[in-house]
Simulated scan of single mutants.
Amino acid sequence: MTAAGLSVEGVTLTAGARRLVEDVSLTARPGETIGLVGPNGSGKSSLLRAVYRVLRPREGHVRVDDADVWSLTVRRLARTVAAVVQEGGADFDLTVREVVAMGRTPHQRLLAGDTAEDGALIDRALDAVDGTALAARSFDRLSGGERQRVLIARALAQQPSLLVLDEPTNHLDIRHQLDVLDTLRRLSATVLVALHDLNLAAYYCDRLYVLREGRVTASGPPADVLTPGLLAEVYGVSAEVAVHPRTGAPQVTFLPGERCAPKATERTGPDASVR
């Protein structure tokens, strides 16, 4: 697994007349963990879909190691980019191990079975998400949190250079949230992850991009980005931000009952809405 560089250059995404993302640029150096944060409807999921080649930009480009993702063959893309998405929990009439083994498909010849190396990688991926005991169980009988862990294991087995995750800690208890994010931090791959939990984002991400209404509002190291002023402007909440004495990361404490209205963002034209 070799980390790839990611460059999103002036990307605009639309759905009919609606503008989902507008003129967004971001970079991820090889091996970095980059976090996308922002309110619901800010365009995070849409931007991720452009990175793993589900939404084609109306304007701009997404490049992985200087290659436009839309120029890659399906096989090369699958060897380079893996995605764990929010709607990825469809039923599979397969065991957990068989689902994780699907991650090895881009690296295998047509109709070839799993090699000993494939088996070792599948075992390692299951172990990384505390899923070894689930291996023989039917995927469609798992809880939401168990399914999420299995889908992350499938992506790990894929050995991508760039791993894209949309709210990977959804449905997970606190222990497994930390275990999964610890695993992502240890990968040699580059990671682009959307997170709602700002404290997890502050601890695990090298840099953050804050999206609001389809635009980048702020970017940089978590300590520079997560300020009371930004949280009031983007989220409409009052908060205190301090440096945690043990982790050294910013720690956000929200102040219930002290809400404030987000500052309006000027948008014009019939396609000014995002989701």
Rank of each mutant, 00 (worst) to 15 (best):
S161E: 13
I152F: 09
T227I: 01
N199M: 00
Y203R: 13
D197N: 03
L172P: 00
L200A: 01
A155D: 07
L181Y: 03
A155K: 10
G145S: 08
R212P: 14
L181H: 09
G145L: 11
D179T: 13
A155I: 13
H176F: 00
L134M: 15
P168K: 09
L151D: 12
V210I: 04
L198M: 02
L151V: 11
A202V: 03
D182R: 06
L208M: 04
D140H: 14
L226F: 05
A202S: 04
R212W: 14
A136V: 14
L165C: 14
D182C: 04
Q148H: 05
R186K: 08
A136H: 15
L134A: 15
S188C: 00
A202Y: 02
L151R: 12
L162Q: 08
V191N: 02
Y204F: 02
V150I: 13
V216N: 08
L184A: 03
P228N: 03
Q158G: 04
R137M: 14
Y203Q: 11
R185E: 00
A157D: 09
D197K: 02
V150Y: 09
R137K: 14
D224F: 13
N199W: 00
E146R: 12
D179R: 10
L142S: 10
P228S: 05
R175P: 07
P168G: 07
L172D: 00
L156Q: 09
D173P: 10
R207D: 08
Y209I: 06
D140R: 15
G214M: 08
P228F: 01
Q158M: 06
A136F: 15
Q159K: 13
A194Y: 07
L226Q: 09
A157K: 10
A201G: 03
L151G: 07
Q148L: 11
V164C: 11
G145H: 11
V193A: 03
V191Q: 02
V216Q: 08
R149Y: 15
S188F: 07
L178Q: 07
S219T: 12
L172M: 04
A136E: 15
T190A: 01
N199T: 05
D173A: 07
A189L: 00
G145I: 01
S188N: 04
V193Y: 01
L156N: 12
H171V: 00
L172K: 06
R154L: 07
R149I: 14
F139K: 15
L211R: 08
R212A: 08
V210S: 04
L178E: 11
F139N: 14
D197P: 02
A153F: 14
